[in-house]
Each structure stands twice: as structure tokens, then as C-alpha cells.
Nucleic acid binder design. Structure first.
Lengths: 249, 249
DNA sequence: CGTGACGTTGAAGAGCGTCAAGAAAAGTGG
DNA sequence: CCACTTTTCTTGACGCTCTTCAACGTCACG
């Protein structure tokens, strides 16, 4: 645990500015939240399903994901979190999470006690609304994933995930031209998309051979954004990004 | 449109009492919300994706569902709403919905203007928290559906949906012993579960022949709750019902 | 007694899963 | 820097779940 530094929660401020610009006082209030910083290694557990927590987690750097264990051995990945995300906002109002979380890369996390967040939302209704809004966007992303799992084939699902992650990372300047880090292994992609790693592998080969993407050494490059969007039937509206850099086909 | 009657929003009060019992003042505040009541026929559109609305909808009676249209012809159903649900709480903080809504049965809906709800949440932080909580539960249900679409077979998905709907209806006294109405046609079930209606049909036959359920004339009866839960790997915790009547296997 | 919506069933086929094995990368310790 | 191990990726062969297509049955309703 490291004491909170000055500009520590800047990613959160940036995220919450998605709706309206925040006032100085509001930004100040966030900055002075007593956050504990923790750096976790890849594969390390951040949160265990069913166990109540007393603080909310904010991803400052690195990637994490939420998943459930099924008795049949499945381990569906339910969400992927990148810098700026607050993956367990639900713990503010629900007793125990219905999912677990692990780090996909080495990650820097800030933990803010629920009590402090409750004080914050009581004092600043705008911030309460902004946090609520984040939770609603999470649900919208869930719906987009459901639609894919339900009615898209493997190509469409992969393409859609890549489009989504590219825009979400762009919004936080984590993209490099059309390239982004891709810490998910093929088994992780499979668990996120309801496929097997073998089929993910074959489908990736297909996307590569069509010149849509390249993916190696944990780095994804999108070679044909428009065509990829078309394959994915991607419409970025559900992400509710402010200036959604490049739009869909 | 019918003017709001006295006990009109009782289902909402009951729902929001899920966390803590509401005070008299809070209940009173909800009751005096200026709600417009609308009765819609089955199959009628309630909300169109992409079109902003100025009020939130509360289901007082009947069933509705949320879905998206995909260009490939798919129409994934993303949520099923029963009495007590507030299906488009997201419109309070997000400009345009990412889904459409139709009535699955003739339904009675209350529409409360956003402005009134904002006044309410400003005046009663407990109610703001309760509404926020509802949105979080919606997301938890989304995650349960994702897990199913991702890693359960047709049998498991059907069984899981039936278990979920049974408990959600029980919580509002809409169950009759182990029987509930089931307005979803087989094509609707297919769209909700990521299957085809043909396969839903065959899988239903299987569940019937095992003596788990019977389903005809829009009425579902569960003959073996424990075995059905086992098939579904059902754990009701994610629903966050107060006295979740009967628990999982 | 038609007519449309919904349910049921069969046959054939596609997409994806399973199993298995080998190749390439990526850590580990000397 | 090199063996060594472990993880991840890749590929093939085969099979199963679920889809597709199409026909027929059934019930409600005007």
C-alpha cells in the first residue's frame, strides 16, 4: 500500500467528466479522497466472488477482468477493465459481488473506502450522478456483449471486442495509432466470447489473413478499422464516450 | 393516459424496499410522484432504441422485454421485465437507450418524468441509493445471462431462465405454487437464450420428458424445483431478493 | 371453415468443440 | 548465454450440438 499522491485519481476524474465537465470543487473532492494504491501482478486475484468488501477499486493502470466460475468448469469472463474503470462500483450498494476479479497484467489499483465515497456522493450530487452513470454504462456494455454471445458468430464477436477495446483505450490515450496492447491470451478471449481457445485461434487466423488485424506479442494492430467495424456490426454509441474518436461504419 | 391513483406505485415501493425498509416520508414521496399510467397491448412498442425519452417507465403489471436489432436479422432479447421492474432507469443519466422495448403481454406501465425523479433523489438520498441499487441488480442479471450464453448448453440456459423468472415473480406474489405465467413464445425464448426456436422446442421436450417442467397455454409449471436448479446450476444470490423464497440446490 | 400464429418434427449440414500432438514463445535457474 | 521447463499458440482429425430448411399439426379466431 502506497499513500495517495497528488494527481493519483486523475483517471477517475477524467472518466467522470464523460457527462459534464466537473467543477473545481468536485475535482478537488475526488483528489482528496483517501485512496490506497496497490500494485498487483498479472494473474493475481483482486476480488473474490461472494466476499464483501469495504472499498471500491479503481483501475489506474493495467487491465483486469471479472469472471465467474461455473461448476462445469467454465469460467466466463464478464467484463474487461482498463485504466479509468471502476469495476466494482456495485459493492457500494450490494452486499457481495457476484463475480471475481483478477489482474490481466501488472496493474495499479486505487482502493477508496465505501464510507468515503458515500460521503462524497452525499456532498456532491453531480458526482453521485456521474458514478451512477458509470454503472449504467457498464450495464450497456454488458448488453452489447450479450447481443454478441447470443447472435454473432466467432468472427463477429472477436471483431466487436477488438473495436470496443480499441475505443475504450483510445479514450484514455492508451492506443498507439491503431495499435493497442492485448494482454488477453487466446484462452481469455475464448472465455470472454463464449468460444474455445482452439476456435479463437482459427478465427484469429482468418481475421489476420483477411488483412483486418495483426496480433502477436500481446499487441493488437487494426489494419482496416472500417472493415473491422463492418464485420463486427459495431456501433460505438453504447460506450457513451465523449469524443468517440473514430466512428463506426 | 390515466391519472395516477392512490396506491399506484406500490410495486415500486415494494421493489425499493429490497435494501432497507423505506420510511413513511419516503413512501409518501414515491406515492405522490406524478405518474402517467399507460396500458399497452402485447407486441406493442414501448421504447425505441436510440430515441431519447423524458420519463422512466415502471412495470406495474404484465411483462415486457428489451432487445436490439442486429443487421444479420438477429433480435437478441437482453432483459425480461416483470411487475415491479423499472426497465429504463438508465434514461435518467444516459441520453439515448441502447435497446428497444416491447410488451410481451398486455401491460400496465407507469411513466414518471425524469425531472420528478431527479427531484426525488435530491430530496431523499436513501431513495437515490435504492434506485441506483436497482440498476446494479439489473447489471448483475445481465452478468448471469452472459455466463449462461457463454458457457451453458441449451438445457442449462432454459432451466436457468425458468428458475430466475420463477423467483422474480414469486417476490411479487405472481407465482401460483410452482406455476408462473410464461408469455414468451418459443421464438422469444430462443432470442433470449441465443438459440433457435427449433432447438428450444426440442430442449423443452427434453425437460418435459424428464419430468422437470410442463409448459403449455402460456403457463409454466415447475415439477422438480431442486432438480431444475441443479440442471441450471442456479444460485439465486445475484437477484438480491429479500427473502428469496426457496433457495438453490 | 378458412387463415394466420405458434408448435412440432425430420433430415441434412455448418459451426464450433474435443482430443491430441507438435511448434513457438516465454519464463527459470544455472 | 544456454539448457530446461512451462505456458501459449498452432494445426489436424473427428464428432457433437445446434442450425437450417421445410413440411405438417394444432389451436384460436373472425
Amino acid at each position: 500500500m502506497v499513500p495517495a499522491a497528488a494527481n493519483l485519481l486523475a483517471p477517475l476524474i477524467r472518466k467522470l467528466s464523460g457527462a459534464d465537465r466537473l467543477s473545481q470543487a468536485e475535482q478537488q473532492a475526488i483528489q482528496s479522497l483517501p485512496a490506497k494504491v496497490r500494485i498487483v501482478e498479472a494473474q493475481q486475484t483482486i476480488l473474490s466472488g461472494g466476499e464483501a468488501s469495504t472499498s471500491c477499486c479503481i483501475v489506474l493502470d493495467g487491465w483486469t477482468c471479472a469472471f465467474q466460475w461455473l461448476r462445469n468448469g467454465g469460467r466466463p469472463i464478464l467484463a474487461i477493465n482498463v485504466p479509468g474503470d471502476a469495476p466494482d462500483l456495485q459493492s457500494l450498494h450490494l452486499p457481495a459481488p457476484d463475480f471475481s476479479m483478477v489482474a490481466l497484467t501488472r496493474a495499479t489499483l486505487a482502493f477508496v473506502p465505501h464510507a468515503e465515497l458515500h460521503k462524497l456522493t452525499a456532498a456532491f450530487p453531480t458526482l453521485a450522478a456521474a458514478l451512477w452513470r458509470e454503472a449504467l454504462i457498464t450495464a450497456a456494455i454488458h448488453r452489447a456483449w450479450m447481443a454478441g454471445l447470443s447472435r454473432r458468430d466467432a468472427r463477429g464477436r472477436l471483431a466487436h471486442l477488438f473495436c470496443e477495446l480499441y475505443l475504450r483505450l483510445s479514450a484514455f490515450d492508451r492506443a498507439n495509432g491503431y495499435a493497442i496492447p492485448m494482454p488477453l491470451r487466446q484462452t481469455d478471449l475464448a472465455d470472454a466470447l463464449g468460444l474455445t481457445s482452439v476456435h479463437v485461434n482459427r478465427t484469429l487466423r482468418e481475421l489476420r489473413s483477411e488483412g483486418l488485424i495483426s496480433l502477436h506479442s500481446r499487441r493488437l494492430e487494426i489494419h482496416a478499422w472500417d472493415r473491422l467495424c463492418a464485420v463486427a456490426e459495431f456501433d460505438p454509441q453504447y460506450l457513451h464516450l465523449k469524443a468517440s474518436g473514430r466512428n463506426a461504419a
